[in-house]
Design a protein around this nucleic acid. Structure first.
Lengths: 126, 126
DNA sequence: TATTTGTTATAGTTATTATATAACAGATAG
DNA sequence: CTATCTGTTATATAATAACTATAACAAATA
């Protein structure tokens, strides 16, 4: 699974790493048990500091996506527990679309399509 | 429409204000043409600085939810243009649920329910 | 036991968030 | 016309977040 970093993005680097790993898990590219590169390795690949990568792994562990151990490194191991505020965040995001006049059915269709691109293997993003 | 501020939240105050106004528009409580309190008024109500409120209004204007003019103040006036990165944010959020093993149908159901609570007048949040 | 891994500790830089004050400038109501 | 209310702009300050740089520590494992 490839990860791309945009250093100039307003989204923090550690958040970019976090989001892409979460998406990798969602797509089934990162299965439970899969080992991730060491923080030093990833940091070297991206040309960033190891603490930035560590911050991403720490966050992913707190969110219940990874288990991190010494020597073994980070291993994909979702707990199955969705973040408490997930639905609140969904609410805010969907409200944004409604507020701009997008019909609820259209919004739902988009959700469906996004879910498809995440679950259907081989389906290209669109 | 009532707005609640949690000063100790990790979510910035200006973002809290922004989110609640967007939700107010989505729910139809803030119709196009509705005037918002002046930045000094809101700041006084919340006991915060006027610049913090101004930052929220500025953001809402940039996002195309408000028109801000002198003397008139901020007026709800959605442009109908959804943010370019909206779908990317949706993608990240839905991926988070999938990654925790929530079935796509269950996720879609939740989207539907959230949309209902936003659009059905009188329906209590749940 | 040597090596690789994450962890912890310091320190410094830059950007963001929020505050406080003050002054400026346009629109409008009287 | 003018006073007043609006957002706007300008400084300044403080706290926190994000990122970097180095170094050392500690546990697991080959």
């Amino acid at each position: 699974m490839l990860i791309f970093i945009e250093p100039e993005s307003e989204k923090p680097i550690y958040q970019q790493i976090r989001d892409q790993i979460v998406e990798g898990i969602a797509r089934g590219e990162l299965l439970p048990g899969t080992g991730l590169p060491s923080i030093r390795q990833l940091a070297a690949d991206f040309g960033i500091n190891l603490h930035t990568v560590n911050k991403a792994y720490e966050l992913l562990e707190r969110e219940g996506f990874l288990q991190v151990r010494r020597k073994t490194g980070a291993v994909v191991q979702p707990t199955g527990k969705l973040a408490e505020d997930w639905e609140a965040r969904l609410r805010t995001l969907l409200a944004e679309a409604l507020a701009q006049g997008l019909p609820a059915e259209e919004i739902l269709t988009r959700c469906q399509r996004v879910l498809s691109t995440l679950t259907d293997p081989g389906r290209t993003r669109q």
